[in-house]
């Protein structure tokens, strides 16, 4: 069983690494994070105002934008079964959940490796210019980025489970819709809802919406880890009071991301087991 899982993971890792999509993503992500970290200095006039915090805040934006998109697209493209290959694969004497989880693990490893190139390059530029301050926040961001990859791979698995043939295209379109909702629409809706409510309730709605949305959870957690309470001014304190301190905030944010990883994957395995391939 374990052997089969690793075999599937290895196979998927090999396919992902050789895929043009992964290579393009690695290249684009590395290029953009290098540009962000290098221009952080050019824009501040080389005087190093807020060296690390400002630069890494831009890295957070990059992660929030690109990582969900790449995980969803590459996930659906790899996981939605192609007719011939899928028939062969799923006719093997293995449980479908094992195959799926193995594939997701392999994809996750490939995408995390691709992100590591961008993070490593950016880190070398930032730290050699600004000193070693903020290493912990930087590592939190890297870890968060790989967790976000897992979250959206899980959602991609759910979208593409049993999406054979024509339904592949539909899964891809759905992936884009999910990305747009998670990255932009959800927050806009939360802000809109909050504007209709009384101030105290509105604040609670906003804080809960930040915890519920995986993109919002990573943004909040990463910026708090990188910049401390200056990240959102007094709103940080409101948030920390709601979560009863930094430990509570870490648990809630981490729990939200964990649920978002586990639940879609569980649903995906269930759906795949029942699918007719």
């Amino acid at each position: 069983m374990k052997g089969a899982f690793l075999l599937c993971a290895r196979q998927e890792l090999l396919l992902a690494v050789r895929s043009r999509w992964t290579q393009i993503f690695a290249f684009v992500f590395a290029g953009l994070s290098l540009a962000v970290s290098a221009s952080g200095y050019a824009l501040s006039g080389g005087h190093g105002i807020q060296d690390f915090a400002r630069t890494s805040a831009s890295l957070v934006q990059l992660v929030l934008l690109l990582v969900p998109l790449s995980a969803l697209l590459i996930g659906v493209l790899s996981l939605a079964p192609e007719r011939g290959a899928a028939e062969l694969l799923f006719s093997q004497p293995l449980g479908r959940p094992v195959i799926l989880l193995g594939q997701v693990a392999g994809l996750w490893a490939a995408l995390t490796a691709a992100q590591a190139i961008g993070f490593g390059a950016a880190g070398v530029v930032v730290f050699s210019n600004a000193g070693g301050e903020g290493l912990a926040g930087f590592l939190v961001l890297f870890a968060g980025s790989s967790v976000l990859t897992a979250v959206f791979l899980g959602i991609a698995a759910l979208l593409s489970a049993g999406a054979v043939g024509r339904r592949r295209a539909r899964a891809l379109a759905l992936a884009l819709v999910v990305w747009f909702i998670a990255v932009v629409l959800f927050d806009v809706a939360a802000l809109g809802l909050a504007s209709l409510l009384r101030s105290g309730t509105a604040s609670r709605v906003l804080i809960v919406s930040v915890l519920v949305n995986p993109v919002g959870a990573l943004r909040t957690g990463a910026l708090l880890a990188l910049q401390g309470t200056t990240a959102f001014g007094s709103a940080s304190l409101a948030f920390l009071r709601f979560t009863k301190g930094t430990v509570g905030a870490g648990l809630l944010l981490g729990g939200s991301l964990l649920l978002w990883t586990v639940v879609p994957l569980a649903l995906a395995t269930r759906r795949l087991s029942r699918a007719d391939i």
């Binding site: 690494v17 490939a110 993070f119 880190g123 301050e133």
Partner: peptide
């Protein structure tokens, strides 16, 4: 204040960079 922990941070980043590249290259 940059004297502290400048080296380890750069080395750590370089390590992440190398590990990522290695995994992608090895996979090929």
């Amino acid at each position: 204040r940059r004297s502290a922990a400048h080296g380890p941070a750069v080395a750590g980043s370089a390590g992440i960079l190398v590990a990522g590249t290695a995994l992608l290259a090895l996979g090929r």
